[in-house]
Each structure stands twice: as C-alpha cells, then as structure tokens.
Design a protein around this nucleic acid. Structure first.
Length: 475
RNA sequence: GCCGCAUUCGUCUAGGGGCCUAGGACGCCGCCCUCUCACGGCGGUAACACCGGUUCGAAUCCGGUAUGCGGUACCA
C-alpha cells in the first residue's frame, strides 16, 4: 500500500487491501504488507504509524512485514545498476524542459506521447562525456520496440498492448530512488508475491512492469485489476465527495465489520441476494472470479444502513462495550459514566445507524434535556398539549413500581380517560422528557430517567407552555 | 492526440442465448405493527446506452458509435 501523504486512509485503498486479504485468507495464502513510500512525500513516520493503526482497527492482519521501500534503497540501486550493465536499462540525460518540448512536438504531430528513446543509443563515450559534464541522469528501462505484451487478467480477461507505444519509462530517479514501476515488481519477486490485486488505475502500467519481470528473468504474477471506486459524480472518489477516509467513518461511529462488508460489495457480490455478511463469512465466500469489472459509486447512505444492521446483530454486551469504547475514544463527556451507558445501550441498539448518533439520541438520559426548537414548536401548535402533559403527570405520579410496564399501563389509562389517542398524548410528553420528537421508547426512557426527574421535566414543560391546565380554556 | 478498461433501476448489483413480462439490496413513496423515530412486515416506483450483425431466439455472442473512467509523470 501507498501511505497517504495527506495522512488520511482512503476507503479505496482499504477496499484494495481488503480484497487482497480476503483472497489470501480464503486460499490459505500469505499476506505481505509493504509500504510503497519511495515518493518522498509519502515517506513519513506519521503516515506509516497511522496506516498500521487503521489496519489494526479494521482487523486486517499480515504475515510478512511491514516492509518499507525507503529502507531497501540499496537493493534497488544494485539491481538497477545491474540492468544498465546488461543493457536492459540505460541512463538518460534529457532535461525536463527537453522532454516537455518533445511531448509538445509529438502531440502536435498526433503521435503517442512516449519518450523517443533519444539517450538509448548513446555510446559509452557519449555517456562518459555527459557524466564528466556533471549532467543529472535517470535510468530508463529499454522496452521492446515491437510486438505486443498481453496478460490474462482474472477480472478482465485478455488485455493486450502494443510494445512500441509504451516508451522507455523511468525506473530510477536522478535522486537515486526507484519509481513504483521498478520497486514494485522487484519487491514482488523478492517477497514471493504470486497475486497482484490492485486498482484499475494501474492496469495501463502492467506492460511496463512485465518488462521488469522479463529483464529480471522472473515469472510474472497473476493479475487482478479491481474496478475503481467513484464519487457520486462518477469521478474518482475524493474529499469533495464528503467523507472518504477510514478515520472519518470511524469518527462518526461506523464499525469496522460494517465498513468492510460494504466495501466488499463494491465490485464483488456473493450471489443475487446476500448483502449482510460478517468478516468470517466474507472470508469464506470471497472469490476473485466474482469480482466485476465496472466501476462503482460509493454510497455512504447504504454504508450507514449496513452499519445499523451490524450494530443490531451484535450481542448486547458487545454493543455496550463498543459504544463505551467509541465514546471514550472520541472524548465524549458521556464516557465518564460507563455504567450509565450500559443501562442506556439496550434501548438504543435497535435504533442507531451509527454510534455517533448516540449523544443526540440518548443524551437526555445523562443530563438536562436540550429542547429542540422544532420539536417545541410542534408542542406549542398542539392545542391538546397542556392537557396531555397534565394527564400524563397525574398518571405517572400514581404509578406504583417505577418500571416500564406499569408506566405503560398508567399512560394507556390516561389516554383512555382523556379520550386522546396515544400518539397525541405521548408527543408532548416525549418532547418534555427527551427534548425531541425522535427518541428511544418512551416507557423505557421514563424508567431510566426516574420518577422525580420525569415529573420535573413535565412540570417544566407545563410551565414553559405558560398555562396550567386549569386556565387553558378555549377563547 | 494516442492507448487501455467499462457501460443492467438514482445507487450497489444478479444475470454468462431460451428459466427475464430482467431478480435482490440501499434510497424514495404508500400501508401495517392501536408511542414518535427506528426495527420488522406488506405493496409500489425505477434499468438492459445506441445502431447494426450472428441466431429459430440476445441483457447475454460479434462489430461500430456514443459516453464515462484510467494511463500516457523523475506520483503510486
């Protein structure tokens, strides 16, 4: 994987890594973790540490590594020098300006924009001359100039390229670091990589890498090019599409198994109807053959739905533990009361789509309810509100044992007495208690709040309405 | 420009010649579950890019067009 220079772990990267992991785990293979950090911007300790942290959170493990390409620089240098010696690669002294001008000419002439190979034919003397003049050089791979290169991609089938259209690509920069084109196949050979499962954006670079395999006299791997993950505008998924990093989803309370389940489904399917799957199930069912070739749009809404499904499928104790951990990790003030969270968790488990909704949804059980203006507006607009509140207050005051069932019975009786439908009578009570119109079950909420606090909140609402029940007469 | 890949409901997808008057899921819309929301149940909305060809028969095979995406970097 490439560590991200911006420090955020893109979900597209996760999808690729996860497919690799699934394939290895399904087939009993080995997972090699290698950070492709030859690009200097990507080569920071932070980026590496953060990547490992995210991988751990996701539960994606590895058997070998992590390797870092920046720590293998001498290996690449030696191999490249070897290639030059054998004539499979050569130094190129062209400047960026010269190359740009050349490209411009070719563009104008309608030719493919590949390097002309100008430095390829340099004699030993000519090279020595340029070296003596202190010219900077890169190393280019001498590509075959005729014929074709083909692969049988597991996802796409037969794909073929014209060798003459490839151009001699740079495998070593003038600063002495290798490019992806070289370091990647070199390491894959060194590390015994048999399957290269990666994004479609890398498909076009395959013939160039195959040339490295050939130059190194190594057997090429099996390739599987995964379809791209796109944003809603069908462009490559990026920040302007909203949340795209694993950290962002983790922050808003998406759990790893749900993210992975969702990601598995963009570009792959098990059959014509199975959607919700655990990581174990995915591992058992995954196959490269069922990966499809067309790009998919990332649908955050479906991810949230799926997250809700995974949350609900959790054993209650586990849900509680995860919720406690989540609130603690993100520094929520509610985290200070883990036992309270444990009490509240059962009544919200079937309602949440993300853990991040918990504070807004159940915060009223941890302290004073914040009355939502829209919810309150609905109470004020309700001519029966005061009557409902007063009736509920009476009923609740008379409840014997303060538990959900007796509370329910008492409220039902109040509805009966007042001749009000439950939905009508409960609405203002719900707002008074929770501050919102959308909340956990009312009876359970009342039970958890306690009688005293419940009555106090109803009184407060009555007061805020500005009219005790007795003076609320029609004008 | 050149090269490559792709094209089924708004979105993710099933489909690999007759099982398709195209199935599932998210979303959306109704109804139900005599507490809102959520959950669950029921029902609905909505798609084979286009044009040719092969065939008794095409969403499925072939060709072309269009569109999208990717590559064409001393990024990966």
């Amino acid at each position: 994987m490439p560590p991200s220079p911006t420090g955020s772990f893109h979900v597209g990267t996760v999808r690729t890594m996860f497919f690799n992991w699934l394939y290895a785990r399904h087939t009993g293979g080995r997972v090699v973790l290698r950070f492709e950090d030859t690009d200097r911007a990507r080569s920071t300790e932070d980026a590496i540490a953060q990547a490992e942290d995210v991988l751990n959170w996701l539960g994606i493990d590895w058997d070998d590594g992590p390797h870092r390409q920046t720590q293998r620089l001498d290996l690449y240098a030696k191999a490249a020098a070897d290639l030059v010696e054998r004539g499979a690669a050569y130094p190129c002294y062209c400047t960026t300006e010269e190359l740009a001008a050349e490209r411009e000419r070719r563009r104008a002439a309608g030719l493919p924009l590949v390097y002309s190979g100008r430095c390829r034919g340099l004699s030993a003397d000519e090279r020595a001359e340029r070296e003596a003049a202190g010219l900077a050089s890169v190393i280019r791979l001498a590509m075959p100039t005729e014929g074709t290169t083909a692969i049988t991609d597991v996802v796409r089938g037969h794909v073929e390229w014209e060798n003459a259209l490839q151009g001699d690509h740079v495998i070593f920069r003038s600063d002495g670091t290798p490019t992806y084109l070289f370091a990647n196949p070199f390491d894959d050979i060194a590390m015994g990589v048999t399957h290269v499962i990666r994004g479609e954006d890398l498909l076009s670079s395959t013939p160039r890498q195959l040339a490295v395999y050939a130059a190194l006299a190594a057997e090429p791997p099996t390739y599987a090019h995964l379809p791209m993950v796109l944003g809603t505008d069908r462009k490559k998924l990026s920040k302007r599409h909203g949340a795209v990093s694993v950290e962002e989803f983790r922050d808003r309370g998406v759990i790893a198994p749900a993210l992975l389940n969702y990601l598995a489904l963009v570009g792959w399917s098990y059959d014509d109807h199975t959607t919700v799957m655990s990581v174990d199930e995915l591992k058992e069912r995954f196959s490269l053959e069922r990966v499809n070739a067309s790009p998919g749009v990332f649908d955050a809404e479906k991810l949230e739905w799926l997250n809700g499904e995974h949350l609900r499928a959790l054993p209650p104790e586990e849900f509680t533990a995860i919720l406690q951990g989540y609130l603690k990790d993100r520094g929520s003030p509610l985290a200070a009361r883990p036992e309270r969270i444990a009490e509240v968790a059962p009544i919200v488990q079937e309602k949440l789509r993300t853990l991040g909704q918990f504070e807004g949804f159940a915060g009223f059980l941890f302290g004073p309810a914040e009355i939502d203006p829209d919810a309150w507006a609905r109470v004020e607009a309700d001519s029966a509100a005061a009557r409902s509140l007063a009736a509920a207050r009476d009923a609740l005051a008379g409840v014997g044992e303060w538990r959900a069932e007796p509370i329910q019975a008492a409220l039902a009786a109040a509805c009966e007495r007042e001749g009000l439908k439950p939905r009508v009578l409960y609405m203002p009570v719900r707002v008074a208690i929770t501050g919102r119109t959308v909340a956990p079950g009312l009876y359970e909420s009342l039970e958890l709040l306690g009688r005293e606090e419940s009555l106090a909140r109803i009184d407060a609402a009555l007061g805020r309405l500005g009219a005790p029940a007795s003076s609320c007469k029609p004008r």
